[in-house]
Nucleic acid binder design. Structure first.
Lengths: 177, 177, 177, 177
DNA sequence: GATGAATGAGGGTTCATTCAT
DNA sequence: GATGAATGAACCCTCATTCAT
């Protein structure tokens, strides 16, 4: 891929993300193109259809999150950090990502196999951390680890979520044993 | 209003609510009509436009909630029930209502003056309860009452919320002093 | 036909005429009904469809005009009034009638046989008067009588036409020998 | 603008004008598109809405008329042509333009500022010519110039008006002193 | 006979997507 | 490879007309 093509692709993703964040799903391909200073044709050269663009945004965010999650978990294992801390770190990291947006844009994005896999892997990772935290006695154990994950998903995939905001704090406090 | 007309109006609201719950806002008037076994024209006889239908669903839910909230508050005052209990009752009552749907359907529905008033009144009522609970020492007081209300809104206006579900439990626990 | 039915029919025609005059053809049957204080159903009891109502208004005006024209012509024959005067009388009489409206509402109303006949008869009558006026030397004779009639039609079937207004005056002057 | 796009725009205007002339305002965008061998979308790419298309047709005709009127007036001033002749030239020039159509399509088109300005300017130009003709003694002076213009408007904005047709002749004769 | 609720074809408009330039 | 013009299915809504109450 030529350098300018890659730059255009980046530009499109960034522009689309910004517009989606501002105005929700009600943004046309034409608008995205114009805001990026490109023609619609160029959008369609990079993404076969709208869905693909949305999924690309999602993939991008989830890949970053997965990378972060893996790093944190690895550090925890070697460095003796309690699972509870790792869980908290991952949860708070989500705040900077447009997860709410992603959920809102494509409730059924899971048709994309890579996205589905990423989601599964992420949830598995979080579930391991949750189980670990319950075993170390820092996380209440009257809720199965799978549901803890589901609940954290909701907490974190909400518009306006920020690291350390009140809802996150309350939920983490409510999850403490 | 004739009996059959009233029945149809009910039918429309119920059908629309069901479809919105299933598939989000992406449901056309035509589909709602077909699902209700009516013609589009009938929808438009009952609701001047799509927006009006959505707002009617919202108004309906919020009015019920307001009524419940007022009853609970009144009982609390006469019957010596702690604010904390009243707050919990109202919050759990929300579960049966399509509040998430309402938020999703019309982020800006507040253009409707009655809807706006209801929202303001509801939040004011919840804020009074939150403040009372802080005063009686049952609610953590490191979060201003207004924000407690905001946070409860988020917790409760989420797809799939049910009374007593894990997220609600965790949040209420996290709010306990 | 019962007295109240006849009254309703009159009421509908009058109301429709008024609304059409105010706002042109863009008036729905519903509006006409409401303005008349009736239900749409009642309109359709009296007139099988919209077209029929429009035609009824047209027939009403043209019948009056025909009656007037015949009276004037008869008087002219017995009373020795020049054809020119009769022509002028009829032309000016048109001013009070919603002829422009009629033309505007239904350019093709002539499908109705009675309307077509009336129009033919009216034109024939006017043509006789025009020919007479040319013979008596009061009307310019470089325009065939049939065209004089066509031209008077245009002059008279125009929104805002009033007896003695400037355009009518100018046209009559322009027709004088 | 690309050559094919400009051609299509022309095509749309011409087609629409033709259909409007044949069947009045009751022509749908779909029909215009089909008659032009295009999709509706193309119409909407060139004109934001139906109103804009109608106004474009109107603007086109009025601009041509204004240009002609200015030329005629300028020539008259330098070349010593009586105002009466200039007036007649402009009036007869109107015949080739779809002015009747324009009036019929958009009685209230004057919302468009350029259209409003053109109409004002045209009327002002005609009024100057009328006043001049009264001063030179060729136009009857018992009708104020403004009303002469109004009356000429009616004469000229009528379906089927042609240069030198009988009604125009009669009116011009009726206006001679 | 009167009423107004129900119907659905049709009109204006948008927008994801394709394709000629 | 980029552009933006063209396409048409689908949406929201209106209104002439029918029919149950």
């Amino acid at each position: 891929m030529r350098a300018d093509a890659r730059r255009n692709r980046e530009l499109i993703v960034t522009t689309a993300l910004g517009l989606f964040a501002e105005r929700g799903a009600a943004v046309s391909m034409e608008e995205i193109a114009r805001a990026a200073g490109l023609g619609v044709g160029t959008l369609y050269r990079h993404f076969p259809d709208r869905q693909a663009l949305v999924e690309d945004i999602a993939l991008d965010a989830l890949r970053r999150l997965m990378t972060f999650g893996e790093t944190v978990t690895a550090e925890g294992m070697t460095g003796d950090r309690p699972c509870w801390q790792s869980l908290r770190l991952v949860v708070e990291h989500c705040a900077g990502l447009p997860l709410a947006l992603i959920k809102a844009l494509s409730p059924e994005t899971t048709a994309n196999p890579e996205l589905a896999r990423l989601e599964r892997d992420l949830n598995a990772l979080l579930e391991r951390l949750a189980r670990g935290a319950q075993e170390e006695g820092t996380l209440r154990d009257d809720i199965p680890p799978g549901e803890v994950v589901g609940l954290l998903n909701v907490a974190v995939c909400r518009p306006g979520a920020r690291a350390g905001d009140h809802l996150t704090t309350v939920i983490l406090d409510g999850l403490r044993r």
